[in-house]
Design a protein around this nucleic acid. Sequence first.
DNA 1: GATGAATGAGCTTTCATTCAT
DNA 2: AATGAATGAAAGCTCATTCAT
Lengths: 197, 197, 197, 197
Amino acid sequence: MARVTKEEKKQGIISAALKLFSEKGFYITTIPDIADKVGMSVGNFYNYFKSKDILAKELVLYISEYLGSQIREINERDITTEQKIYEIVSMYFSVAEKKPEMIEYFLRVYLSNREVFGDGCEGMICVSPFVTEMMMFFNDGVESGDLHDQDFFSAFGLFMGYLGGMVFLFGEKILPEPLDNYKDDIAQNIYNALKKR
Amino acid sequence: MARVTKEEKKQGIISAALKLFSEKGFYITTIPDIADKVGMSVGNFYNYFKSKDILAKELVLYISEYLGSQIREINERDITTEQKIYEIVSMYFSVAEKKPEMIEYFLRVYLSNREVFGDGCEGMICVSPFVTEMMMFFNDGVESGDLHDQDFFSAFGLFMGYLGGMVFLFGEKILPEPLDNYKDDIAQNIYNALKKR
Amino acid sequence: MARVTKEEKKQGIISAALKLFSEKGFYITTIPDIADKVGMSVGNFYNYFKSKDILAKELVLYISEYLGSQIREINERDITTEQKIYEIVSMYFSVAEKKPEMIEYFLRVYLSNREVFGDGCEGMICVSPFVTEMMMFFNDGVESGDLHDQDFFSAFGLFMGYLGGMVFLFGEKILPEPLDNYKDDIAQNIYNALKKR
Amino acid sequence: MARVTKEEKKQGIISAALKLFSEKGFYITTIPDIADKVGMSVGNFYNYFKSKDILAKELVLYISEYLGSQIREINERDITTEQKIYEIVSMYFSVAEKKPEMIEYFLRVYLSNREVFGDGCEGMICVSPFVTEMMMFFNDGVESGDLHDQDFFSAFGLFMGYLGGMVFLFGEKILPEPLDNYKDDIAQNIYNALKKR
DNA sequence: GATGAATGAGCTTTCATTCAT
DNA sequence: AATGAATGAAAGCTCATTCAT
């Protein structure tokens, strides 16, 4: 009577690693750290992930899929583009507060350790589930006449750079107020920046 | 008859380290790597910087002062807030192209390695010359009635997150066009987001 | 309705292990490698051989018995000692070409890993079926007046060292011609060295 | 006042490693083992040899050069080919008794661990100083009309296989008498095998 | 100031073997 | 007999930092 399937154990590792990597950084976190946290031997860890690097790459994909699915859900709603922006900001901040390790992993591990992700995550490969949904959002907005038709990456850079920047400031405990208090301003700023003119 | 002053040697180390850290990452770069690049012995390196961490911290300060001075220069000009935004974007991208190591260091080393900068760079200590100038810019804009009077960090997050995001995409060779081509759009977007409404 | 008897499975492991050990070496070959090749689980492997070392030792015995039986067959023929030498050389080279793993295992695994065979294969224990036959051949030759009556090991060293050396050179692809082309020369050389004088 | 030059330390490592590798085998010998024996830290070992494999390769070359020089010295003497054979056998056995690690390393480490020497020692590269001298000996013998003009490798295989085989038996403590007692027989056997006919 | 050999803790990864199922 | 997840000791190698010269 196997209580825990292999897939569940893998999930356990993913959770533990996500937290450790985002808190302490990729290089500071050791495999024994991760194994300890899951309650498993070092050797057994390698039955689930062939290497530390591969684990790191699976993590990005995992997050990218999670965030992508959240955005898809918003994209599919029958609301205005302005409302969608608000919902995306809202969702992003909510993730940043409830599962900070996800956003932090993105910002602090994925974006900063080219050596690790270079091989196998070139370009946006490991992040495409997320980027694709953002593209969908943007195209819909342009088509519906709500958004100014500019280069996608310029808009994407604004959107994600802005949110990332805020979460970063939040993580550094520099923001004087909770993230949520900024939602309105930020969504408004983004809409002003992207709307049809 | 010393040809090279101690201060000049320190500058040499700063240059070399900046390049190496931003290209290969903080943990991948070794002290021998840096010493090699400057043409100095490992032992002697430690006569200039007491540790790798301390070097890393001096580097942030160095960059922060450099960027701060660039912004001060813009702040002091007699131009509209909208023009200032354009000039700041322009300056930032120009640095990103001519001295990419500076911006990359900011994005990839400073922002991502809390372990390293935690002690001694809490909050915005190591980055205050730069942040202070951005505050000045923002306050001037609000006072002159050009900018909407919102929380500084929200505006700062937008500004720097956006620019950082674009430079990141550029560094990843994901942007289809050179950074300069985005200047107008981006400055416009930022202005739209921050202007008085 | 068991299709495959326990003995047959053991043979399967022997075959697989022989190939892997001789190709990749004893230490490079892992138990999972072997289990994979036989199509059996790691756990089950241990139902057939108590340890990697024990497997290695059974392998020597297996080869020793095989080669011993081949030589016995030659010994029993009604031919001159000179002809026997030729037949032994011929047989040895033929094995080296058709089942190279056997000779290679002898040369590269058995002869070189004292640590492994030390305990349980002291002296010539694991190799005695083969050595015994060679002794018979030599004694017969001396008795029949064909061979010079010298120390057996001196003759044995010549015979096996020579053949081993040639197969080694062959395995390293250093020999300009196929092994067979050397048979005559070599048998002649050996006979000249050992014959009554 | 440096007592021990870097080159001398390297020699120390070579000596220690040669002994350990030949006694315990390449895989059983660890870097800490070697460092311990030299009285040096593990880290410092790597200042002298970039890897265990590279050390192993330098060792072959070292031995090959040593043996090559010994044979050259014999080649240059004004003695008959038959006498040269005796001298070579004699020298080989003397090395096997006084510096057994050299011959053992050849037989047990170099000849048996293809994985290790494959890259960088293809063919006879790492062993050419020795092989070259053997070629000289053989060519001289043929030219002077003493030796039968056969394929070099066939003769080389005989010579080295024979000697290697005897040293192997000696190392296994199987030979009933000291190596020296076999010198005459063996040199005679070799000469009989190779001489003009 | 300058050198670079030396240290040693610590990292990632491997693998023979066991054992619950 | 069969499975393969689990263990944990041990290996090779790296690197920030020190220190005798």
